[in-house]
Amino acid sequence: MLIAVTGGTGFLGAHTVAALLRRGHRVRLLARDPGRVPSTVDVVTGDVTDPVAARRLVAGADAVLHAAGVYTFDSRRRDELWRVNVRGTEVVLGAARRAGAGRIVHVSTVGTLYPTTAPSVGPASPVGEPREAYLQSKVVAEGIARRHASVGAPVVVTYPPALLGPDDPHLGDQNARLRAVLRGLTPIWPGRGLPLGDVRDSAELHARLLGGEVPARAAFFGPGNFLTTRDYLATARAATGRALPAVFVPPRALYPVGRFADRLQRVWPWALPVQYGAIHVCATAVPVDPDAPTGGVAARPALETVRDTVTWLHATGRITGRQAGSAAVSTSDADGVSAALTGPGSGAVQTEEVLS
């Protein structure tokens, strides 16, 4: 099968591309810099907001994965969120539908279903009305996908949880947050919790969907677990053997802190570890219904995911041995660990392009 992919050089996209290649599928990527794309895939040069490039990408494709998007709670990137997440979705899904692709997978996020008064979310859950720029952009993008599906287009929406895992080309939001925890930059945490999954599990779900291994339905949820923030820190402690002291505060009590940090971020040149959006997710998140479809992919234990991520962060020089604790690798083993995590069977494609 020929599968067209946007966002194939980002975190989830790169892992999905690797899973597709392992299955023997042909992959065609949309990328702004072809020189950073592996030689094992076809490339269309362009941006997701470029209708001509989108038409070239999807021409003759059996299936389309729209995984491109800006995932950040950084208040400085509001315009970029709407340009890429909303306009990009309009362009790519419209092109895929007109090209007659047999299956179109739109990557949303479970966060679009918050806030909710229900005890859990599932395929029948309506989108929420979040008060945060990233989630607002993803809600509008999902509305575009749902409209295409409502008129008969073969659109499937997937809802990944917050994703951790090795082989992150850009050290995205969640891996950067774990790194901040290990560096002692986030000693104060909002209470409640968040859905957390392994990027390799969501990539496996996407590969099954795109390859036709899973019967079509309107929506699927990325495999994951709901962890309280206390559980999250406990898992990081177990993975590293470190104390990682922290104070837990009711999340809404931290809203003013998050809003102030967002305003400060607009003039502060370095990324701040405190963001209103992250606090908002912890305040509003609920578990995914245990019967929600995951394409038959079981979520791996959170401890395995966190340990693998910490090991990768250390092996690639992003944290020190002291910060990695018991998950650290020796200098002599670091190259071997890095090769094992980034090699052909690891589920990752190493690149630097995030928005294509």
Rank of each mutant, 00 (worst) to 15 (best):
P38G: 03
V105R: 00
L163H: 05
A18L: 02
R252Q: 12
V121Q: 08
A239E: 02
P301N: 10
G122H: 14
E129S: 14
T72S: 15
P169V: 07
R76G: 08
P187V: 09
R131T: 13
E353N: 14
I319V: 15
A203W: 09
S330E: 11
D47T: 14
T284F: 00
R259I: 01
D173A: 14
H25L: 05
A153I: 03
G94S: 14
G46H: 06
P51G: 09
L303C: 07
V157K: 03
L21Q: 13
A180H: 12
P287A: 11
G184A: 12
T112W: 07
T40S: 15
L313A: 10
R242T: 03
T9L: 13
R217I: 00
T158F: 01
T45P: 00
V249K: 08
L30G: 06
V127W: 04
T49M: 03
A153L: 09
A53K: 01
V349R: 13
T109E: 05
W312M: 12
D173N: 05
I104G: 06
P115L: 06
L303H: 06
A298K: 11
V48G: 02
G336L: 13
T311F: 00
V214G: 04
D42F: 00
Y159N: 13
P161R: 05
R77M: 13
H66E: 10
Q174H: 00
A99Y: 05
A162S: 14
F226E: 04
P190C: 06
V44K: 06
D168W: 12
R146F: 07
I104C: 03
D168A: 06
T49I: 13
A334I: 11
V267T: 13
R217L: 05
D168C: 04
T320D: 02
W82A: 01
D42R: 08
G172Q: 14
A339D: 15
G152Q: 11
P119C: 01
P34M: 06
F248P: 00
A243P: 05
G111M: 03
T240L: 08
L182I: 12
A302S: 15
V354N: 01
A133D: 15
L171G: 09
P215Q: 02
Y114R: 03
A101G: 05
P195M: 12
A61I: 11
Y114A: 04
G224E: 10
T116M: 09
V92S: 07
A298I: 01
G24P: 03
S120C: 14
F73W: 05
R318T: 01
G172V: 02
L20R: 07
V58I: 07
P250H: 09
I188T: 14
L254W: 05
S346V: 01
P161Y: 09
L341F: 14
A95Y: 11
L196K: 01
R200A: 12
P190D: 10
A162D: 10
L264F: 06
A340G: 13
G241P: 03
R77N: 00
T240I: 04
L210S: 02
V249I: 14
P115F: 10
L210V: 07
G46L: 10
F11Y: 14
P169G: 10
A285F: 02
T6G: 08
V41I: 07
G277Y: 11
G295Q: 07
P130F: 08
K138A: 14
A285E: 05
P245M: 08
G224H: 13
T235M: 09
